[in-house]
Design a protein around this nucleic acid. Structure first.
Length: 271
DNA sequence: AATGAAACCTGACAGC
DNA sequence: TGCTGTCAGGTTTCAT
């Protein structure tokens, strides 16, 4: 599911409910692949800890923990394709595919639900803390952004999805950004002119900011920590609009596969 | 080093 | 009703 705007929306809704709370106990279920630290390790780190801050690095949710008589630590959650992190009352029904329940001192619970099991969770206790790598697309400057693509022969869409370059752009926002920049997804990254890179830089930031303002895109099952869907999907100009008229020129939107992902573009507006 | 395809999972939906 | 095939906001691994 979630790309940068969805994760940002989850982080904001989560932060408003759980910042300052103490995690009293944690419950796990499900298969080992969900847990990049063992459940025992996660429990030993987060039980008894106070939630200092909830923030985001790319598509990773980072929960900073403060612990008595021990060093700080971080609880990391990546939502994969279908994960959600919900704050609920303890009497809320436990939905199918719930893999983690963290009980808070107030009685509220943080629940990690993920039907498709592509999500992951773990804890980090290093001094340095978690570092996702790649550049935050909303913080990067234009020259650094342009430098990421200058030498790459891969399609620009593949480069946008590469989390080691930019962190947080996924399939929807790659397509939407390329449409707004009038650039075809299959163009070699190194072939983009300075003007095109400038348009792409502006488009990525604009699309991400507009999507955050709309609470993200709910295409199938994305919801924030309150269980609320986002609204940006109604503003999509190409994603999921195969065969529908381009909002600029009325040419039918095409769908192809690039980087193994469904890719949508206007064959007339995007060159 | 870099690029692309396949694999990892479950569920929804279309077509027969 | 139920089977088969396709597709889905992502990332990692393996082969070239």
């Amino acid at each position: 599911m979630p790309e940068l705007p969805e994760v940002e929306t989850v982080v904001r809704s989560l932060a408003s409910h759980v910042t300052g709370e103490v995690i009293e106990s944690v419950w796990f279920s499900g298969k080992p692949q969900t847990f990049k630290s063992t459940p025992q390790k996660i429990a030993s780190v987060i039980e008894g800890a106070k939630i200092d801050r909830v923030h985001r690095q790319g598509k990773h949710i980072v929960i900073d923990l403060r612990r008595d008589s021990q060093k700080g630590a971080q609880w990391i959650v990546h939502l994969g394709m279908t994960g959600s992190l919900l704050v609920v009352r303890p009497d809320a029904e436990i939905e199918k595919h719930t893999h983690v329940i963290a009980k808070l001192a107030s009685g509220k619970e943080i629940r990690f639900v993920d039907p498709r099991r592509f999500g992951r969770t773990w804890v980090v206790t290093d001094e340095t803390g978690f570092e996702a790598g790649g550049h935050e697309p909303l913080d990067i400057g234009f020259e650094v952004f342009a430098g990421l693509f200058r030498l790459r022969k891969t399609p620009i869409k593949s480069a946008l999805l590469n989390q080691k370059l930019l962190r947080g752009v996924g399939n929807i926002y790659a397509d939407e950004s390329l449409f707004r920049a009038h650039i075809r997804p299959r163009r070699r990254a190194s072939s983009l002119t300075r003007d095109e890179l400038r348009r792409l830089y502006d488009s990525v930031q604009k699309v991400l900011n507009e999507a955050i303002a709309a609470g993200g895109s709910s295409v199938s099952d994305y919801v924030d920590a309150n269980g609320e869907p986002g609204m940006f999907q109604i503003q999509h100009r190409v994603y999921g609009r195969e065969g529908e008229p381009c909002v600029i020129c009325r040419t039918p939107i095409k769908r192809v596969v690039v980087a193994g992902r469904s890719t949508h573009y206007c064959p007339k507006c995007q060159r």
